[in-house]
Amino acid sequence: MNDRVAEPAVTRPTRTVIRVQTDDFDVGAEMTALRAGSAAIGAVASFVGVCRDRNDGADVAGMTLEHYPGMTERALAKIADEARGRWDVIDIAMVHRVGPLRPTDQIVLVIVTSAHRGEAFAACEFLMDYLKTRAPFWKQEATPDGLRWVDARTSDDAAAERWR
């Protein structure tokens, strides 16, 4: 008799991971942890936002991210819930850094798992568009002319508006 019986597909509750942290994150480790234990997952889509060295025509030496503790986590949870209402996704992770960051540093990570890629891609883009316009984070950049608060972009509003 063959010992290698087929393993049953592991079923587990879906995961929603929301974290605001000063520390960096490991994309691979986050992805591995998020999808662990579910054989229902056929697609994993992710987005990583990174700090650039130029913005709005000025050199950027670094930035500081401020947020509204409590409301931030609440806003991200609502955005994740909204994505679940629109697409058949399995897991969602949203990790956002705060505090001082330098060019090339990772800022934000969104991961979505689903059975098929279409849902994961769409939900991932939606989560980022809504995060950028609804989650209470603010960036202050250090430029050669001093510190300046980053202005909200109308293009971000337009991107979020597409999902209405």
Binding site: Y68, L131, K132, F137, V150, D151
Partner: peptide
């Protein structure tokens, strides 16, 4: 009640 500028995270 919190007052703030339009958000710029991400």
């Amino acid at each position: 009640v919190a007052f703030f500028p339009p958000v710029t995270g991400g």
